[in-house]
Design a protein around this nucleic acid. Structure first.
Length: 125
RNA sequence: CGAGCCAGCCAGGCAGUCGCUGGGCCUUUUUCUCUAUUCUUUCACUUGUGGUUGAACGGGGUUGGGGCCGAGAGGAAAGUCCGGGCUCCAUAGGGUAGAACGCCAGGUAACACCUGGGGGGUGCAAGCCUACGGAAAGUGCAGCAGAGAGCAGACCGCCUAAGCUUCCUCGGAAGCCGGUAAGGGUGAAAGGGUGGGGUAAGAGCCCACCGCGUAGCUGGUAACAGUCUACGGCAUGGUAAACCCCGUUCGGAGCAAGACCAAAUAGGCCCACUAUAGGCGUGUACCCGCGCUGUGGGCGGGUAGGUUGCUAAAGAUUUAUGGCGACGUAAAUCGUAGAUGAAUGACUGUCCACGACAGAACCCGGCUUAUCGGCUGGCUCACUUU
């Protein structure tokens, strides 16, 4: 039985961790409303960081909703990803989507990210 | 039943699966650590004590894993517009400047809030609105229209008594000099209103009533009110969310406040050691040469980071009691989010009225703004029926 919990070890916890991803984004996946930046973290578990700017998503309730659904989708996909640190940035218009559309969007992007990371590994070899 | 007014309450429910945050309890050698007892190693001597080495078996704390239990956004959590608590800094006292407030009384920790009362406005009414001190200290401002807009003003109209001139039928007529704020007209506003007297025509010019002002009296804690009394012929147009004047209040900065612990790197201070030394690198090794460089320890400030502040509170509910009321007092009961790259959820099913506005960030009291609907109570008006 896999463990689908989502505790602090699966999050980016401070500015240095965020900065590492921003400065060395090996993998990028994006759609009109979101951008994923990611890099290897040298461990076997993935970690997630969120940047939902007030500028792009006006209301606090909408920001909370997006973050919750993002974390939920990450929680369910975590075993596919391996040791990757990811920062997700919201763009304008993300708050226009409803919950099910958000789920679809995020799952699609996690899939793309996973495939890209496999390719990158093959190249390295 | 229709239209409307006021006050208060609710903010999708239920079930299943998977999660998040911080509590409580249990469990697990998972980490580090403290410690009782027993045995053991070795040393000292005052010969059974103390130190020391290791082990066994307990107990506690801490960290990690697992399990169970119960808790977990709002009426506005929002805007950050007021007021306070709390924290640090400053502070003899007074004044100036500046800001806020502005009918009266009360409530409160305090307020720009609330309650009660008064004045004004508005609605048939229940009610609602009210920035409601001073224009009789000074300065300023006011489009268009209009003759004139603040020591008023003759455009039309009205008058021709007095004075002058001319004519004359000696009654008067015309003109000049003028008079006049009743009427028309302009304007948001034209310097009290109505009636009478008066007059050439008029005019607070005089009178009555109404209104206004001042002083008194009466009622009221007061704002204020009065069908009361006296006096004043009437003066003082508007604007103070224009400057201003008067009265009252106000020290500053904020939880990124403040307190504590505290890496790495750089720098500071102190102490010890060392100057033909030592360390590192290098010439194949030694001797020796060359290049680079003081070494070790401690202290304090302080950054990242962590802990705390951090939720028990001017607290809620109920009852009693004082008060018209806001609210106060007393007793009993309850113990109600505390995150920090930031939790309080996601999915599925189901029911219905088909779910609005919207997310705590030190904490309270207000105000303001947003809001799908639903429910409860009280009241007003209109209609119908009896």
């Amino acid at each position: 039985m896999l463990n689908f919990s989502f505790n602090k070890s699966l999050r980016l916890l401070d500015a240095t961790a965020y900065k590492a991803v921003f400065d060395d984004a090996q993998l990028k996946v994006s759609k009109q409303q979101v951008l994923y930046l990611a890099r290897k973290n040298g461990t076997t578990t993935p970690r997630l960081g969120l940047v939902i700017a007030k500028k792009n998503v006006r209301h606090a309730t909408e920001r909370n909703r997006i973050k919750r659904i993002l974390r939920e989708s990450f929680r369910l996909q975590q075993h596919q990803l391996g040791g990757i640190d990811t920062v997700v940035l919201a763009r304008r218009g993300l708050d226009q989507l409803d919950n099910s559309a958000l789920h679809r969007l995020f799952n699609q992007l996690w899939q793309q990210l996973y495939e890209k990371s496999l390719k990158a590994e093959k190249k390295a070899k």
